[in-house]
Structure formats: structure tokens, C-alpha cells
Amino acid sequence: MTVWQQARLVERLRETDSAVTLVFEPEEWSGHLAGQHADIRLTADDGYQAVRSYSLAGPVEEGRVVFTVQRVLGGEVSTYLCDDLPVGAYVEVRGPVGGWFVWRGTDTRPVMLLAGGSGIVPLQAMVRQRRALGSRVPFRLLYSVRTPEDVIYADELARPEGGVDVAVRYTREAPPGARRAPRRLGLVDLNTHGWPAEFEPMCFVCGPNGFVEAAANMLITLGHDRHRIKTERFG
């Protein structure tokens, strides 16, 4: 039975101007699968509560769990977590949950990861899980993001391990010298950086609603089987 438990914030790391990685120490955490999430609950002094889901950003390490939260303009929970929650303070967490949007190291199909904005979080968790397992399953990550400054995990993505191809595509502003003009992810990008449908890859798509809808439709257009496309919409 998964119930609420207290978790103490032990570290806060800046990722971008609008995203932070938060490291929590829950009372007990036996582990989780890459792609799973947890629910975080905040309680105000008058009893008001707010619950939101956040993906686990990587494998549990020394009992600590890691989230990366992107600030949503006017967002009740994300702005509090990004700007206000002090190190040493507690939130409540419920998890890990969600057994559907997960990558298990036992599956040997090639993996295609399509991330939009903060949708990178559970997908990078899969990359990190692959690393932790020493797996050789070939991965391709296609990451769509507004500007170079918005790239979460930029250092890590710049030096991917063997067998993991990373391509970042910009929608608003490209880095100086880039040949591709900034625009939304299109079929060309998927054709160039994705796996062909004949390889029957497992496809994981995560990000804001509009991105997930568009990317999943492109995969279907390219001939990928609906049953091998898993989506996680952030809202």
C-alpha cells in the first residue's frame, strides 16, 4: 500500500533559470523503475493542501530521491518548490507510482525518447538507469526545447555515453551558428534522429500536452505501432 510519508529536502541544484533539481530524503524508499513518478503534497497552515505529480529523475541513491521541477508561470506548486521550499524542510510524498510509463532493463528493443521541455525528466531517468545497469540497449533521445538556456541536464546531455544518441532541437531560439532555424519538432527531425519503424523501437514521449499529442501523431504517421508508443502528459 502506498501512503503519504515525509521527505526532507536535503539539496537544491540549479538546472536552468526556470528549473531546479531537488534531492529529498524520504523515510523509506526501496527503489523504483525508471519513468515512475511520485505525488508531492504541500499543506498550508490553515489545512489547505495541493498535490502534484513529479517524475523521479534518476535511480534512488543512498535512500535519496531526485526530482527536477520546472517553474510554471503562476503555478501554485511548482513556483513554491522552485523558489521557496527551504533546505531542511519537509513535504509529503506518495510513491513510487505508475507501472506503465517505465523502461525495464530487461527489454532489449531499441529505445526512442522524445522529450518536450520538462518532459526530459523521466526520459533522462531511463538514460541514467541504462547507465546504472551497464545496459547496451541502443537509445536515441530527441529533446525539443525553447532556447539553449532552457536545456535541463545540459552538461550530462553534452557527453552521452556510447549507445546513447542525443539531439536537441530548438523551437524559439537556436544556438549561434546552428543550421536549423528554430521551429517545432517535425517529421524531418524524427526521420533524422529517431529509429525507423522497422526497428520496432519502444517509444516514450513526455512533455506538455500539445507536444505529446503532436509527437505521438508523428510517430504513428511514420508507421510506429500504437502499442509501442507510451506517453506521459504533464498537463
Partner: peptide, 13 residues
């Protein structure tokens, strides 16, 4: 009983 989250007010006026 849930723990209080310091300084959290939610979007309330």
C-alpha cells in the same frame, strides 16, 4: 496529520 509546509499558502487571497 500532515506536516505543515513552511510558508506554503497556495494561490489564495
Amino acid at each position: 496529520m500532515s506536516a505543515l509546509t513552511p510558508g506554503f499558502r497556495g494561490g489564495r487571497r
